[in-house]
Amino acid sequence: MSALYPPISRRFIRVWQRNLTVYRQSWKISFIPPLLEPLFYLLAFGVGLSVLVGSIHYRGEEISYVRFIAPALIAITVMNNAFFENTYASFVRMYYQKTFDAMMATPLTVEEIIAGEIVWGATKALIATAIMMAVISLFGLIRYPEGLLLLPLAFLGGLAFGAAGMFCTAIVPHIEQFNLPVFLFITPMFLFGGTFFPIENLPLWAQKTALLLPLTHLVHLARAFANGRIDATVLPGIAYLAAFSAAAFPLAIRKMRRRLIK
């Protein structure tokens, strides 16, 4: 295992397909959260809070508060879907259902199993994003065709958060201990990652900290794509997410290998 990137054949698709087959068993239920969540948020913030906030000054222009938070809701959905899929759901498959044990007795390798899981986490983020975009588009809050870039963005963001989640799955002893990364990693990003107010409102040290975290970049990119304002400022964000995924992916696989192979 000295190679930076472990060898992974296309067979990881088999693991992805397994998760898709299970997902399709309960797709009617799986579809509900991404359908209703944006409606609740837009109702709460658009009708309730925007009376107080009105419009917001963002990157040199005034935009309505609803238009400001709608892309952030998509970014949060990407984060939550991929991270929770590759923490709680992957842990259940690994620890309680022994799904990985069964797979390891077939020609699949640990590397392929974990790669399939992370790609599946990114796929779930993509599916949720597509549903959410349909709802948000009804309110005229996404500009097309630029808005379609949200789909590949959801997949890239899903890889980053999925790999981070899988890394946690490889190291937590019990399922309850996911509380810790959720509390220390997910919740602060949800609140301070430029989601509900611009990070420029934060003190400088907090702004710098926020820029180290993946959700801040994902939110910025989602806002740029949804509002059709694609300029050079999207490049650092894309580079950040690509680098984060490229680093977290093999790290998660290596940790997982250490956990599974005894």
Partner: peptide
């Protein structure tokens, strides 16, 4: 591993899938 069949001690079927689906999904591996 492609040439052996393994019955592990613990039940590691896919609980949400049917009998037929369990077999079809496993065959894909």
């Amino acid at each position: 591993k492609a040439r052996i069949g393994v019955c592990q001690q613990e039940n590691n079927l896919d609980p949400d899938l049917s009998v037929l689906q369990n077999l079809v999904v496993f065959a894909r591996y």
